[in-house]
């Protein structure tokens, strides 16, 4: 049997004070598991970007993480507005964040590009008006 550990988090929307809670918890678990420091860092960065996206764009959502000795799989799903143009959204610097969000220092247009950069595999399923599901995998 392949050993896996599953974690689930509900991310509430518009609550910046709690953004980063899920990625922080995942990070501390991975450290205790003795996962390679570089992989821990990549998971923490990619997941935090995703978590912030859930808060900023989707009004919250859910994160599921599956840890196995071979890889870490992350699924971020939301019932938000969906992404109109995925290719454009993947461009560094492109952002649809509002001015008020930018004034908080977010919305630099690096969220999705960073998630791709720090993960080994990434897949986006999105439908306008229905929501988005992002899959990321980091191999160990």
């Amino acid at each position: 049997m392949c050993m896996t550990m599953k974690l689930h988090f509900d991310v509430s929307g518009e609550d910046f004070t709690r953004a980063g809670e899920a990625s922080g918890k995942v990070k501390s678990k991975l450290k205790q598991l003795g996962i390679a420091p570089d992989a821990v860092r990549r998971v923490a960065i990619a997941l935090y970007e995703g978590e912030i996206n859930l808060v900023i764009h989707a009004g919250g959502g859910e994160i599921d993480v599956e840890i196995s000795p071979e890889n870490i799989k992350m699924v971020l799903s939301d019932k938000g507005p969906g992404i109109a143009d995925v290719e454009k959204a993947m461009t560094e610097g492109f952002s649809t964040a509002t001015e008020s969000i930018r004034s908080l220092g977010f919305g630099a247009g690096m969220g999705l590009p960073n998630m791709k950069k720090y993960s080994d595999e990434m897949k986006i399923d999105t439908k306008l008006g229905e929501g988005t599901r992002i899959f990321m995998q980091i191999n160990l």
Partner: peptide, 12 residues
């Protein structure tokens, strides 16, 4: 703070 010698052992 690591729990086990390998990730697999740590997970168990």
């Amino acid at each position: 703070f690591r729990l086990g010698a390998t990730p697999k052992e740590s997970m168990e």
